[in-house]
Amino acid sequence: MSALPEKNDGIRLTEEEKARRARRSKAIGFAVAGLCLLFYVISVFKMGAGVVKRPM
């Protein structure tokens, strides 16, 4: 039976896996920013001129 490791380092990603993870993270970042912009644009254009008519 092999001895247990002294220190469990967990999973080490390969350089390729790290690069892919970074690209996925970037894509998710852009997607989230895009979503914020999309909802903002929908809100503005759905409200139209009403966007400036605020009750005092």
């Binding site: 999973i11 990603l13 896996e17 892919r20 993870r21 690209r23 996925r24 970037k26 894509a27």
Partner: peptide, 12 residues
């Protein structure tokens, strides 16, 4: 864990 596909191998 790699064998179980728990680490994503996907590109965007």
């Amino acid at each position: 864990i790699r064998q179980q596909s728990l680490i994503s191998n996907a590109d965007p």
